[in-house]
Design a protein around this nucleic acid. Structure first.
Length: 487
DNA sequence: ATGTAC
């Protein structure tokens, strides 16, 4: 597909929201809604992501609108930063492209009782210890080995499986989206090949935009919610951004092959074959849903094991147990997943399949799926930014339920393609540049650092500004990076 | 995102 600029209509329809009308493209069942500032629209128009928003609006059973967040950019079939809800009772479909290749890519935040002054003279040692303990990079195997039977059990149970083996504590589950266990995951719908890839990679970081960062709370925007989350100024935290590694990739790939003939078989047309999908209640759809849920449970396990290794490293560097260092999990969110959820649409309660691809659930105070500890304030939302500037902690709000199926942004969003960023980095020492900005960075590949350099991303502060102003979630705390390990 | 082309 062409990646040229988008020149179609974007009609301003309210706070930070722009509409692609159904008249833009044949077959659109609903309009497109893109949340962005006027200034950001210029960046957003640079690739075909808005056209992908329009393509998604043609999917059978789609409800209300094809929605995109301010960190939108081009992706496989669906844009990254997209939200699509389908109703199975209206022929609604499930689509692997609406979840992404990295099923349950997501973010976990681990708190400590350390402050900036406690770590600032230990950052080099800390980052080195993290880098030499936690495997990074594509294809890397980890220290935890599971045989195929164990790997399938792990996919069925989620992090409880590894916690039962001493790798974490039960209260970690209370602080994970869906308690780290998506019901209906069936490991037997996952191919042997996918299981084989997953068996040796649980507890590894991967490559691309995945990272593990030591961060400091740089600013607090909502003191009451920050207190409820146990966050305060100058506190040290660890942010973990990773997904389901080769296992999720293989589940996605396997399903795309099985979906190839679905448009003919079930009688619908797609404007782009990368939108491959199947009715929720079809054999192909049911198999993908069962496998995708199992891969999601694996993703939660991967971040659990990454967290546990970070706890061990801190304990080693600071000579105290991780419990004594207060290394408790704030929360863990998935930002590449499809889930069956109840939403109110035109006054009626409906169970819909919400696809979030590079988009984060942001449920408000009082929602039954928000853990009890946060029920009074809303769900913690974790937004990873780029490695030079910032990341954010937000809280879910009612506006998200009203406008975006309980969803907000997932990160900064790329502003440059990987190849453009790579070319831009030739001859530079990006780790040295980061050091001048106060960030110790270690990566297993020089190219990785160039592709992920700060200016390859939009300013995450701007992205967060849009979702705050549009009431899709609210600012709680801004985090500044001190040290990072990457693939 | 991904043993970046079984």
């Amino acid at each position: 597909m062409s990646k040229g600029a988008f020149t179609g209509p974007l009609e301003h329809i309210g706070c930070c929201c722009h509409r692609i009308p159904t008249s833009y493209k044949a077959g659109m069942r609903v309009p497109g809604h893109i949340y962005a500032s006027d200034a950001m629209l210029e960046t957003i128009r640079k690739d075909q992501a808005p056209d992908q928003v329009a393509n998604v609006a043609t999917l059978p059973g789609i409800q209300v609108a094809s929605i995109a967040m301010p960190d939108i950019h081009w992706g496989y079939g669906f844009c990254i930063g997209g939200v699509c809800a389908t109703d199975p009772e209206e022929g609604g479909v499930i689509s692997p492209g609406g979840v992404g290749y990295d099923i349950n890519c997501g973010v976990r935040l681990l708190k400590t009782n350390l402050y900036l002054d406690d770590v600032k003279h230990h950052m080099r040692e800390l980052v080195k210890a993290l880098f030499y303990t936690i495997p990074t990079g594509a294809g890397r195997a980890g220290r935890y080995k599971f045989n195929p039977v164990e790997t399938r059990r792990l996919m069925g149970e989620g992090p409880r499986f590894v916690i039962d083996r001493g790798l974490g504590v039960a209260r970690d589950l209370d602080h994970t989206e869906a308690n780290g266990h998506i019901d209906g995951g069936d490991p037997h719908q996952v191919s042997d090949h996918a299981v084989k890839r997953g068996a040796e990679q649980c507890g590894t970081l991967g490559s691309g935009n995945h990272f593990l960062e030591v961060q400091v709370v740089d600013s607090v925007f909502d003191a009451d919610v920050a207190r409820a989350f146990g966050l305060e100024l100058n506190q040290i935290c660890v942010m973990i951004h990773s997904g389901s590694r080769g296992l999720g990739y293989q589940v996605c790939d396997d399903s795309l092959a099985s979906f190839r003939n679905c448009p003919v078989k079930y009688g619908f047309e797609l404007p782009d074959r990368q939108l491959a999908c199947a009715p929720v209640d079809s054999p192909e759809g049911r198999k993908y849903i069962a496998a995708m849920r199992a891969a999601a449970n694996y993703g939660f396990c991967n971040r659990q094991l990454l967290m546990q290794q970070a706890r061990e490293v801190f304990a080693g560097v600071f000579g105290r147990s991780w419990e004594d260092l207060g290394m408790e999990q704030l929360y863990d969110v998935a930002h590449n997943i499809a889930k069956l959820e109840e939403h109110t649409i035109e006054g009626k309660k409906k169970k819909v399949w919400v696809h979030r691809k590079g988009a984060t659930r942001a449920f408000p105070a009082g929602h039954p799926e928000v853990p009890e500890a946060f029920r009074a304030v809303g769900q913690p939302v974790i937004i990873p930014g780029d490695m030079g500037r910032a990341s954010w902690i937000l809280v879910g709000s009612q506006g998200a339920m009203d406008k975006t199926f309980g969803t907000t942004c997932h990160g900064a969003g790329r502003a440059m393609s990987r190849t453009a960023a790579l070319k831009d980095g030739v001859g530079r020492k990006i780790d040295k540049e980061l050091e001048h900005r106060g960030v110790i960075a270690m990566a297993s590949s020089r190219n990785g650092l160039a592709e992920e350099q700060p200016k390859a991303y939009k300013n995450v502060d701007d992205v967060v500004g849009v979702v705050h102003d549009a009431d899709l979630s609210r600012r709680v705390a801004r985090m500044r990076p001190l040290g990072v390990i990457k693939g």
